[in-house]
């Protein structure tokens, strides 16, 4: 088996598919963040809604991805988006909701009540408390949720090749169809590498956005 030869012969296509893959995942995580983080914060203010929202996100996550693509197909077909990148991105956004909403919710809930009390008592508005205390304290855990979502999406996006979304899943899908081992393994290697790189990148981001005071606190506690 000549994997290196495969990459040498197909490097342009490999780059293109990798780019496509990254793009789908990046867009979906971005959209999922815009939706999930505000929902996660909003449900900390309402205990009943919190249980419902988190359970719904749980159900979504337990649905197998192939099944979800299948379920969305007839609905999106009405708008002419049954196949391709649009249903893939939508599915990825939905899958990302659980880790993002759950982590945001837990992180905000875990802000020590005396900090909220002090902020309130000193005359911070609830918006200001959110911005200056709750979010800065929650951000490491929120980013950890994004990290889980991004890594998971890289895997699911590979499956989205079956509904014509493109990306590195194409190598795996075509490789299986053509019984072309180098292609299957080449695709798998690229997907794995991507997941490892994104994971490391998000870990770095987590460290960059965490306040020094909180890092010191963690270091002292452990």
């Amino acid at each position: 088996m000549d994997i290196i030869g495969f990459f040498q012969n197909n490097y342009e296509r490999t780059l293109l598919l990798t780019w496509e893959h990254v793009w789908i995942v990046a867009l979906s995580v971005f959209l999922a963040t815009l939706i999930g983080v505000p929902i996660g914060i909003a449900i900390t203010r309402n205990q009943k809604a919190a249980a419902k929202v988190i359970n719904s996100a749980n159900v979504l996550m337990t649905t197998p991805s192939i099944a979800l693509f299948g379920l969305m197909l007839p609905i999106l077909a009405v708008f002419g988006f049954g196949l391709g990148k649009v249903p893939a991105v939508i599915a990825l956004v939905l899958y990302s909701q659980l880790p993002i909403i759950r982590n945001t919710y837990i992180a905000i809930k875990n802000v020590p009540p005396e900090l909220i009390d002090a902020g309130k008592g000193l005359g911070m508005s609830s918006w200001r408390r959110l911005r200056e205390i709750e979010i800065p304290l929650a951000i490491p855990v929120i980013i950890a949720g994004l990290r889980t979502a991004a890594v998971m999406n890289i895997g699911i996006a590979a499956i989205a090749a079956y509904i014509g979304a493109g990306g590195l899943g194409v190598f795996i899908q075509q490789g299986i169809a053509r019984v072309y081992d180098e292609m299957i393994i080449g695709g798998a290697i690229m997907v794995s590498l991507l997941a490892i790189l994104v994971d490391a990148g998000m870990a770095l981001l987590e460290r960059l956005v965490t306040s020094k005071g909180i890092k010191l606190e963690k270091a002292l506690k452990s």
């Binding site: 005396e114 900090l115 009390d117 002090a118 309130k120 005359g123 911070m124 508005s125 200056e132 304290l137």
Partner: peptide
């Protein structure tokens, strides 16, 4: 909010913001 800004407030748990 204005009322609280005009009054000093200190609590037992201190409640210093760890990120600041």
């Amino acid at each position: 909010v204005k009322l609280r800004q005009s009054i000093g407030y200190a609590i037992q748990q201190i409640g210093l913001f760890p990120n600041k």
